[in-house]
Nucleic acid binder design. Structure first.
Length: 578
RNA sequence: GCGCCAGUAGCUCAGCUGGAUAGAGCAGCGGAUUUCUAAUCCGCAGGUCGGGGGUUCGAGCCCCUCCUGGCGUACCA
């Protein structure tokens, strides 16, 4: 599409005296089909020449150079609109996709640049709740998006694997061990220990002191504490990785908080060496009053480091190890102030790469009516107000299974029932994350989570399955030469136009770190395709007309490839049957 | 109090960076299947774009102001 805009600018520049560079940005897509593909607004020229915009458009229409790739250039209201010829549009979309099914959408915009993406980063020792899906899927999609644009991507899981909650687990574990020497420590057992601790601590204050004590022992390297910690981390990680696998998520590094324990002193020393540290109420802080922020706490009054210190150490480490151009923190917007403080401190430390750090924030997830009682509540593992991500996935998969077996049209589908249900059920949950811009708060309801109709993952997957079956219906390879002129209807034009927008959607998604733009694009693509496909009288794909069938199957194949790639980027499977 | 974010159809959200008659999904009503998958498609109904000012040929989008909600506001992470 880009080159058509450039061509339109060239022709306009030749007759208006305005430079191509000034014309290009004002060109825009007309709002409705049938109005052309590129529009030039004539308002400012009209003002200069003191005649009406439609008149200007009319005059330009008379002067402008016509011909391919445009079928027509004409005045539409106050605009001069360019209509692409059907073949130009087809060659730019279908003709570009089919010869390079593996990589037509790739670009090397990020060549030789590294982006570190810190995402998911849960506190372990308890299972993931539904809310973890936000950072996890957002981050995973961003990883794929950056990779698609040629970036070298380093995916980091900054696990919460250190802190007093491990002390709490140890207390709970030790108490259970007193009754039964073989305490189970798998992820579910750890959750029970965690919940039990908080229940017991309700009426026994001393337990909290005991937990702090155990954590202190851990920090001091006590062998039993360290042994238990390692077991807890390992077991938690097992459960976690299992879930990540279901979600198509992976990481290059699991460098959690504990990884930076021995790196924070140096960081603090470097801050001190820059004369940035001041004492305040017994604590050591970086004063940020100049930047209208509360101070960044480096060491508490008892000398202990803080999570700001840890993030500073982590940023330094990442720059040192990976040499990133960008470092994205996919973390809830509650932490916005924290990251502003950290980034500001990095800048004060003299790091010019600090400007590459970015907080990719997102809104809160709360539970709607009917999930826990009838009001909006936020999750709390301690109080039992949690919906575990795994349960949500299982429930969605169960529902998908029911629907698939109801609709199953052949034995092959029945045979693959479990695998298909997994793809569709998980797909529904994953896609729901991309149904709104990331900054929106999300209210979880079972009704929404289990929706398999309308704007949903299964809708896209279903469309992909339909598309897939058509190629088989055609039953042979596509011919080398395809007569694209046969794709002559408005509906087919709309599909081709949608196809040509894929790359632009990826670019926009990347520019805004907003994968939902890809989701929105895919819904639109499927919508225009389904509209055409359902019109069986006028758009039978495979018919006796050899030439027409080939052209239409080529179009279908281009849509299928685009949809499959889009689904992959978002982390959804693309089943060929369902 | 201050800072950040959000406010668009009954509900959930788009609106491509200031342009053409503000669009989807869900819910509601009415239709489409002897023929390539009805998890689909078509139609109807539904809007003072939170309120008020301003800038502009033109504002859902930019500026000011107020209102509502969420989050944050150093020794939890």
């Amino acid at each position: 599409m880009q080159e058509f805009y450039a061509e339109a600018s060239r022709r306009l520049a030749a007759i208006t005296g305005i430079s191509e560079a000034d014309i290009l940005p004002v060109l825009q897509r007309p709002p409705k089909p049938g109005m052309g593909e590129i529009g030039f607004p004539c308002f400012s020229l009209a003002k200069e020449q003191k005649i009406s915009p439609p008149q200007v458009a009319q005059e330009l229409a008379g002067k402008i150079q016509t011909g391919a790739p445009f079928a027509e250039i004409k005045q539409v209201g106050p605009y001069l609109n360019f209509f692409l010829s059907q073949t130009a549009l087809a060659e730019n979309s279908v003709g570009r996709i089919l010869p390079a099914p593996e990589n037509w959408w790739r670009s090397d915009a990020g060549k030789d640049k590294t982006v570190v993406i810190d995402y998911s980063s849960p506190n372990i020792a308890k299972p993931l709740g539904v809310h973890h899906i936000r950072s996890t899927m957002l981050g995973a999609a961003l990883c794929r998006l950056y990779a698609a644009r040629g970036w070298r991507v380093v995916a980091v899981n900054h696990l919460g694997d250190w802190g007093t909650n491990f002390g709490q687990l140890m207390v709970s574990y030790k108490r259970a061990e007193a009754d039964n020497p073989n305490v189970p420590v798998d992820i579910d057992a750890l959750l029970k220990l965690y919940v039990k601790f908080h229940a017991d601590a309700e009426h026994d204050e001393t337990l909290n002191d005991e937990a702090r004590n155990w954590f202190k022992k851990l920090e001091d390297g006590d062998s039993e504490a360290v042994r238990l910690w390692k077991v807890f981390v390992e077991e938690s990680l097992k459960g976690l990785k299992n879930l990540y696998q279901r979600l198509n998520v992976s990481f290059d590094h699991y460098t959690g908080e504990s990884f930076f324990n021995d790196k924070m002193e140096e960081t603090a020393a470097r801050i001190a060496a820059r004369n940035l540290l001041t004492k305040s109420d017994g604590a050591q802080v970086v004063d940020l009053e100049k930047y209208d922020m509360p101070p960044c706490l480096i060491k508490k009054s008892d000398g202990a480091t803080t999570y700001a210190t840890r993030d500073l150490a982590a940023a330094e480490y990442r720059q040192r190890e990976y040499g990133f151009a960008k470092c994205l923190y996919v973390v809830a917007n509650q932490q916005e102030l924290h990251f502003r403080q950290v980034f500001q401190t990095l800048e004060l430390m003299g790091y010019d790469w600090a400007s590459g750090c970015e907080h990719v924030k997102f809104g809160m997830l709360s539970f709607g009516k009917g999930v826990f009682g009838d009001g909006n509540v936020t999750g709390s593992t301690r109080k039992g107000n949690v919906i575990f991500l795994e349960d949500v996935l299982d429930r969605a998969v169960a529902q998908a299974k029911e629907i698939i077996s109801e609709n199953a049209r052949d034995d092959e589908i029945k045979r693959d029932l479990d695998a298909l249900a997994e793809q569709v059920g998980v797909g529904a949950i994953v896609f729901s994350e991309f149904l709104q811009r990331r900054m929106k708060d999300v209210t979880f309801t079972w009704e929404k989570a289990l929706n398999l109709h309308g704007d949903s993952g299964p809708y896209l997957q279903y469309t992909h399955a339909r598309l897939s079956s058509l190629k088989g219906r055609f039953g042979r390879e596509l011919p080398q030469e395809i007569n694209y002129a046969r794709l002559a209807s408005e509906s087919e034009r709309a599909v081709m136009l949608a196809l040509s927008g894929f790359s632009g959607a990826l670019d926009r998604a990347l520019a805004e770190n907003e994968p939902s733009i890809v989701a929105e694009y895919l819904l639109e693509l499927c919508s225009v395709f389904n509209r055409m496909f359902t019109d069986k009288e006028n758009h039978r794909i495979v018919s006796e007309d050899e030439e027409l069938s080939a052209a239409r199957v080529a179009l279908v194949e281009a849509v299928r490839l685009t949809l499959a790639e889009g689904l992959r980027l978002l982390g959804l499977e693309a089943p060929v049957k369902m």
